[in-house]
Simulated scan of single mutants.
Amino acid sequence: MENRAMPRPQRCEQFDPAEVGIVHVVQRCVRRTFLAGLDHASGRDYSFRKDWIRRRMEALASVFAVDVLSYAIMSNHMHQILRNRPDVCAQWTDEDVAIRWLRVFPGRRMEEHLAEPTENDVQMLVRNKERLAEVRSRLSDISWFMRALAEPIARMANKQDECTGRFWEGRFKAQRIVDEAGLLACSMYVDLNPVRAAMSETPETSPHTSAYDRIEARKGERIPSAAFDLKPIPTEKAGREIRKTPVEALQQKRKAKRRNPTGKRIRRDEWLSPLTLRESDLSNEPQMHTKGFRSSDRGFLNIRWSDYKRLLDWTAAQAVVNQAGKLPERLAKTLSEIGIEASMWRDLVWDWQKYFGKTSCIGRPDSLKADAERTGRHHHRGQVQAAGCFG
């Protein structure tokens, strides 16, 4: 009998903008070349582009109804764990939706005039109810979040390299995460990507990761916020500025404002979703964020940061499989409580590609089976392979 590969799942099977879901996303540079790191062929170092990506991600977290749970930006690809939040988006006023959309997608007219969204622009979109409903749906859509992240980075890189063509390799890979065991393991895998790739030795020396941001934030580090300014400017003021200000001066003004649109400084991790679930997070309330840096204040793991950090450090140190140490009892208990076989934890994170590299879904076998049935499948690829890692 012919052995056919399972078809790639459709996006609608992995996440729905109208339903809260958590997805592991991987976006690779074209031909997996080092377009955001040190190019060994040419000797040119493009590592500064990692800052472009991180800043853009931080900015988008302030306008989209998408929580960034974890991330790692590597030299030729990036990982994110994203949670879409239609429940948060539903709480925004029509004016909130309009200004958020126009900040990210200002439209050709505003781009040509180098203007910012005005009160009149916002009201025009608000009055177009059909268009507004479409925009509201897109603001909680992970595909639109990734589009808004990837396209500007590609344009900037191509302009710098004086070339055209693709920067990213096709559409991003998405894996639905269906339980807490899968979420903890995937988050740890993402945070430890630079250590696994031998780019750094510890999470403390792994910039451009969510773990690094959380570690530095607890040391008191504050940075200029990349969040969008969510206040439209008065229409008359915008008109006067365009008429009286030279184009070059407008360009310089917008460039300066992009570095710190709101003029605020924030804790380095304040744009990320809080790591620890609180008791209030277990309610059906959306836990809306009100300071303008992220969509919600909801955590995502039933584990304290101190325990997550201990587990992160222990796992980072287990580079050689036959020299792996014994997991501390407290951490082993934490893993077993959520259904992970403690003795397999090192293998699960360090050999992630073996267990979940080709799957469309991440979690315990029973959770994968339930999700497969939800989408009319018998099972998910890799379901049996990962079974030994879970209790």
Rank of each mutant, 00 (worst) to 15 (best):
H208Q: 09
A238I: 01
Y212S: 01
G239V: 07
T202A: 08
I215V: 03
I215Q: 07
R214T: 06
T205R: 14
S206C: 02
A217S: 14
G239L: 08
I223Q: 13
D229M: 11
I233H: 11
E204Y: 10
S206M: 00
S206Y: 00
K231N: 08
R214F: 06
R218D: 10
I223F: 15
A217H: 08
T202S: 13
K219H: 13
R218G: 08
S210F: 02
A227T: 11
A211T: 02
D229L: 14
I223K: 10
L230W: 14
S206N: 04
R218L: 13
R214N: 10
R222G: 08
S225D: 05
F228V: 03
S206R: 01
E216S: 01
K231P: 00
A211D: 05
R218P: 14
E204L: 05
K237Y: 14
E236F: 14
L230E: 12
T209H: 07
I233G: 10
T205C: 08
S225C: 07
T235C: 03
A217V: 05
S225I: 01
E216C: 03
I215K: 05
Y212L: 00
Y212N: 09
R214K: 11
R218F: 05
A238Q: 13
E216T: 02
P207C: 07
L230N: 09
A217I: 01
I215T: 04
K237D: 09
I233L: 13
G239Q: 06
D213M: 05
K219T: 06
K219W: 05
P203H: 10
Y212W: 14
I233W: 15
T209E: 06
G239H: 02
A227V: 08
A227Q: 06
R218Y: 13
G220W: 15
K237G: 01
L230D: 09
P232Q: 06
G239W: 07
A217D: 04
D229C: 12
A226E: 04
T209S: 14
I233M: 11
K237L: 10
S206F: 00
I233C: 13
G239D: 02
A217P: 11
Y212R: 01
K219P: 02
I223Y: 13
P207H: 11
I233V: 15
T202L: 09
D213Y: 03
A217M: 04
P207V: 02
K237N: 06
I215W: 02
P232Y: 07
A227D: 08
A238G: 06
D229P: 04
K219G: 04
G239K: 04
A211P: 03
T205P: 01
L230P: 05
Y212K: 01
Y212E: 00
G220A: 07
L230F: 12
T205F: 11
F228K: 05
G239Y: 09
S225P: 09
P203S: 14
E221K: 10
F228A: 11
S225R: 00
L230G: 06
D229Q: 15
I233F: 15
P232T: 06
T202C: 02
D229G: 09
K231V: 14
A238E: 12
G220F: 15
T205G: 10
A211V: 02
S206W: 00
K237S: 08
A226D: 05
D229V: 09
S206K: 03
G220Y: 14
A226H: 12
R218V: 06
H208G: 03
D213G: 05
T205Q: 15
P207L: 07
F228D: 03
E216M: 09
P234Q: 06
P203D: 13
